[in-house]
């Protein structure tokens, strides 16, 4: 008996050490932090370092200081990509109100609603590669639906993906399809939490239509809106799959964005300029940092305000 009592006490002491507030959270965080450190933090600094070198990935790396950045700021392709990134950011934001509209439309009870909801959510489930391929066919002026529609009105169909002025908009339209579905699902869950009391109270005060939406529903949807904006901004900045599938940055680089430009320079068949690619990565990282910093600040404020 004696022994077992002491061993229980021992166990308790042990448990209290492992379960103490100081140790346990770190222990649980450790695996995630380790991977975050190895696969996210370390590569950031590695890229930063490489961006000062000229290196083809196999031979000797030579220190060239700021030369990669000097070249970058003198590179037309960089400005084309930057401009396209901005176009992406602005137009991709359409996914947020469009997602809201679809969510409001679907937020009613009728027979088969679940089926319609899942149909609207479908584009988000399928791979971006498939979406890109489908839209490439849509846009084909010879056999695509775009060609059919134009010909129906007796017009010569445009080659959307072959025209430097249209190509980026064409790809964004394709990208919006799954992104709207994503925003829609965020809003649908948000709408579940809109309190019926407040709607009721608003009704008594004679609020309806737009006013009801703007003053009563939307403020309650702020968490969903915030999340939708965050995922859309990040989605726009890392748009890559669509471009790789639909145009490979073409025609002649006019649909490039920074992420694809970086890939092309560092890792594609004619690339393997690791240093130059890294300098593009660093610039893209700095741009993202502005947004991420803002989002973190908002979230931090919310957390504190919430308590």
């Amino acid at each position: 008996m004696q022994i077992s009592v002491s061993s229980v006490a021992e166990q308790r002491r042990k448990r209290s050490f492992w379960q103490s507030q100081a140790v346990m959270p770190w222990l649980l965080l450790a695996p995630a932090m380790l991977f975050f450190l190895v696969y996210v933090i370390a590569p950031i600094f590695q890229s930063l370092l490489y961006s000062f070198y000229e290196w083809d990935g196999i031979g000797e790396a030579t220190w060239i200081g700021w030369a990669n950045y000097e070249e970058l700021f003198d590179d037309d392709r960089f400005y084309v990509s930057l401009k396209n990134n901005i176009v992406w950011l602005v137009l991709y934001m359409l996914a947020v109100p469009a997602g809201l509209a679809v969510a409001l439309f679907l937020n009613q009870t009728m027979l088969g609603m679940r089926f319609y909801k899942s149909m609207f959510f479908f584009p988000f489930v399928i791979s971006q590669v498939v979406v890109g391929l489908i839209f490439t066919w849509f846009y084909n002026p010879n056999f695509g639906i775009v060609g059919e529609i134009w010909r129906f009105f007796g017009a010569e169909p445009p080659s959307i993906l072959g025209d430097e002025d249209l190509v980026t908009y064409g790809i964004i339209a394709a990208g919006l399809w799954p992104q709207i579905a994503y925003c829609m699902i965020l809003y649908l869950t948000g709408l579940n939490n809109v309190s019926a009391d407040q709607i009721e109270a608003g009704r008594l005060d004679n609020a309806k239509g737009w006013k009801m939406l703007w003053y009563i529903v939307l403020p309650q949807l702020w968490p969903a809106t915030f999340l939708a904006i965050v995922v859309t901004v990040i989605g726009a900045l890392r748009s890559f799959d669509m471009i790789a599938i639909m145009t490979q940055g073409g025609p002649y680089g006019s649909s490039n964005v920074l992420s694809y430009f970086m890939y092309e320079t560092a890792l594609s068949e004619y690339g393997f300029r690791m240093g130059y690619g890294s300098s593009i990565a660093v610039i893209l990282f700095l741009i993202m940092l502005v947004f991420i910093g803002y989002f973190l600040r908002v979230m931090y404020k919310n957390e504190r305000g919430g308590r």
């Binding site: 072959g162 430097e164 073409g250 025609p251 002649y252 004619y270 690339g271 300029r273």
Partner: peptide, 22 residues
């Protein structure tokens, strides 16, 4: 062209050819 010229030049050159054709 893309085997005789170095990779970076080949890529830029071929983009130029495509642009010229359009």
């Amino acid at each position: 062209f893309d085997r005789d010229a170095p990779a970076e030049m080949a890529k830029a050159g071929m983009e130029g050819f495509q642009e010229f054709m359009i």
